[in-house]
């Protein structure tokens, strides 16, 4: 039982991270299209932000392992 709850938790974390990373990518691509000369800065910040969002998801997944 605990395992399946953990699995649901992981799935929710993945959904959240997916939405987050998706909107980051969306905005980053828009910005790049608007200002192609700033691609370096945008890419670095995009990856940084995506990493932070992903970090939250990873922590959630880890905790869902632990509490299960």
């Amino acid at each position: 039982m605990g395992g399946s709850i953990a699995a649901i938790g992981m799935g929710l974390a993945a959904i959240g991270a997916g939405i987050g990373v998706g909107s980051i990518g969306n905005k980053a691509l828009e910005s790049i299209a608007r200002q192609p000369e700033a691609i370096g800065d945008i890419r670095a910040n995009m990856i940084l932000t995506a990493a932070l969002v992903e970090g939250a998801a990873l922590i959630a997944i880890l905790f869902s392992y632990l509490v299960a």
Binding site: M1, G2, G3, A6, Y65, L66, A68
Partner: peptide, 8 residues
């Protein structure tokens, strides 16, 4: 539960 799942 998770312990047995992750044992491998």
């Amino acid at each position: 539960m998770i312990a047995t799942l992750l044992v491998d």
